[in-house]
Amino acid sequence: MPRAVDHEQRRFEIVAGLWQIVAEQGIEGVSLRTVAARAGVSMGRVQHYFGTKDALVIAGIDLLVKQAVVGYEATVGSPPRDRLLHLLLQQIPATEAGRIGVTVWYAYVAKAMTHAAVREILAEATRVGVEECTRHVQEADGLGEVEARARAIELLSLSDGLTLRVLIGDITADEAESSIRAYSSRLPGS
């Protein structure tokens, strides 16, 4: 009797290999061969699931965004301030896995400058992040939409800047998290 194959698990294992390569060498270090070797599968399996390097690269950012959405959706039912903090803190690389994830994210940000499909995925993810952050600022602080959107962009920019500083080793993840918590506690409705 043939074994049941979990195709989603196989795809994930290949994408996890991709992320490791991207974290170490950037997207320019990606080839079907290097990803197959890192994932411990044959190059034929990588080609079967993704076909081309470009399809694999796009699948990598798509899955990264989907995982962030799943993490955020786990906060449904929490107070708006807690959901807002999740949006602001989720990218701070507090663990080695988090550092790899954020390093991969920023490699994709760089790739978006020259790759339309990657740029489109990142633009949509960013747009949704701003919308969600705006909604939580409105709920938590009672601001109008225009003021809440401006505040949301300000908060997300603070989080982005602190994340970069953690990645380069200028500050620790704890310092970044403390800064975000301290700043957000001074906002109306806190």
Results as ranks from 00 to 15, higher is better:
Leu164Asn: 10
Ile168Phe: 09
Ser157Thr: 12
Ala74Pro: 04
Tyr108Lys: 04
Pro79His: 08
Asp82Ile: 08
Gly60Ile: 05
Val35Lys: 02
Gly169Ser: 07
Glu28Trp: 06
Ala150Val: 11
Ser78Ala: 12
Arg45Asp: 09
Val35Met: 03
Val137Leu: 03
His48Val: 08
Thr95Gly: 06
Asp62His: 13
Arg99Ser: 09
Leu63Glu: 11
Thr163Glu: 00
Thr34Leu: 04
Ala152Met: 10
Lys53Ile: 05
Lys66Glu: 15
Asp82Lys: 10
Gly40Trp: 09
Glu154Asp: 12
Val118Arg: 01
Val130His: 03
Ala123Val: 11
Thr163His: 00
Ile121Arg: 07
Asp54Tyr: 14
Ala97Gly: 14
Ala140Pro: 00
Tyr108Gly: 02
Gln91Cys: 06
Thr75Asn: 04
Arg45Gly: 06
Ala112Glu: 05
Asp174Cys: 06
Asp174Gln: 14
Thr126Leu: 02
Arg165Ser: 12
Gln90Asp: 10
Tyr72Ile: 02
Gly144Tyr: 12
Ala150Phe: 08
Arg81Tyr: 12
Val146Phe: 15
Ser157Lys: 06
Leu162Met: 08
Ala74Met: 11
Ala123Trp: 09
Asp160Thr: 10
Ala110His: 13
Ala112Asn: 05
Val137Ser: 01
Pro93Tyr: 00
Asp82Glu: 15
Pro93Phe: 00
Lys66Asn: 10
Ser78Leu: 09
Val46Leu: 15
His115Ile: 11
His86Phe: 12
Gly77Lys: 08
Ile61Arg: 00
Ala37Leu: 10
Ala116Pro: 09
Leu84Tyr: 02
Glu147Pro: 02
Leu143Trp: 06
Arg119Asp: 15
Ala152Pro: 02
Ala37Thr: 13
Gly40Leu: 13
Arg127Pro: 00
Asp62Thr: 15
